[in-house]
Amino acid sequence: MHDLAPLTALGSSAPQRDTIGPVTITENPDRALASVAARLGQDAACTKALASVLGTSAPDVAQCVQGPALGAFWMAQHCWIVDGPYDLDDPQTDLAARLKAELGDMASVTDQSGAWVRFDVHGDGLGALFERLCNLDMARMTDGTARRTMIDHLGCFVLSHRGGNTVYGPRSSAQSLHHALITAARSAF
């Protein structure tokens, strides 16, 4: 086990949590991400194999799913982001490597764990918060919806699941994205 101490995207050793009015915004650094893109001509096979890995169907356009261990959301045509727990104790067995082992030449797999910051947003009134952040229609963001959008100029994914929303944004702009979320929450509540 190596001895390099990780930092969260917001630059701390522990994730930040903010409760503003009815909403709680929590940085979630404990997820590993990997992109899965079907190789040419392998769309169907890759989709099927991914379903097997996930334990549920691969998400369709603008959807996210959660399997027993892994979740995934649609990113582009025949391209998904798979997420699972980030194993700090054994980063060698990273998610991307495991997926590549399962999918072989059906897919190109790239580790994306460090590319994104994730904020989980829970509470009542998410619509009032997100209407000040992005152009998604929250009334239509039912559980299992995943949409790409812009939040304060940042390209983000917003996933609606488990009664809350997850925002994935570019990790290097984590502080800007956090500022946007906090400012909008203070404005809304």
Binding site: S35, A37, L40, S108, T110, D111, Q112, G114, P170, S172
Partner: peptide, 15 residues
């Protein structure tokens, strides 16, 4: 489009 190539940015994934 007939080439088997997949691209993704990893600028932020690596320090």
């Amino acid at each position: 489009p007939d080439m088997d190539v997949q691209l993704i940015s990893t600028t932020e994934a690596w320090a």
